[in-house]
Amino acid sequence: MTVSEKDRDILARTLWGEARGESLAGQIAVAWTIRNRVFDGKAKSWWGEGYTGVCQKPYQFSCWNRNDPNFAYLSGAKQIPSREFAQAQIAADQVMAGTVADPTGGASHYYATTMPKPPAWAKAAKQTLKLGQHIFFKDVP
């Protein structure tokens, strides 16, 4: 699969929007969850096609919802702080290049522990990792 500069930019923006308060390791885990969706092995994936398609498919990553406070930054209306964005770019580059192992054990889902309550799907899924403010899952029904 060819990865474009747009894919890199959209993935880094998604990491910033979803996990900007996390360490590099935390952002790498979120990026691997996205990568696992990109490479799910299905010819026509429900998740979307490629990094841009997966990240920007409606309702997958709330930071891209127009009513989310992060959207102004992700769309370019406001500037993401350069130091924070640089870390997200590093995580995106390492995961897209496959130079770091998947710490999530194949997770396709996660949620932030700051949510008022866990999503319903988490009860029947297999937890693979808790890192920072995120819990990761696979085998989600």
Rank of each mutant, 00 (worst) to 15 (best):
M1R: 11
M1P: 12
V3L: 04
V3A: 05
S4R: 08
E5W: 10
K6D: 13
R8F: 07
I10V: 14
L11N: 00
R13D: 07
L15W: 09
W16E: 09
G26A: 02
A29W: 01
V30I: 08
N36A: 01
R37C: 00
G41A: 03
G41N: 05
G41T: 08
K42F: 13
W46V: 15
W46L: 15
W47Y: 13
T52S: 10
V54A: 03
V54R: 06
K57F: 03
P58R: 15
F61L: 06
S62H: 14
S62T: 14
C63A: 08
W64H: 02
N70C: 14
A72S: 14
A72P: 11
Y73C: 00
Y73V: 01
K78G: 01
Q79D: 15
I80C: 00
F85N: 09
A86H: 09
Q87D: 07
A91M: 05
A92C: 10
D93K: 15
D102K: 03
T104I: 09
T104L: 05
T104Y: 04
G105M: 05
G105E: 01
G106P: 03
A107P: 09
H109W: 13
H109T: 06
A112F: 10
P116R: 02
P119I: 04
A120H: 11
A120N: 11
A125G: 05
Q127R: 15
T128C: 08
L129S: 04
H134S: 11
K138G: 05
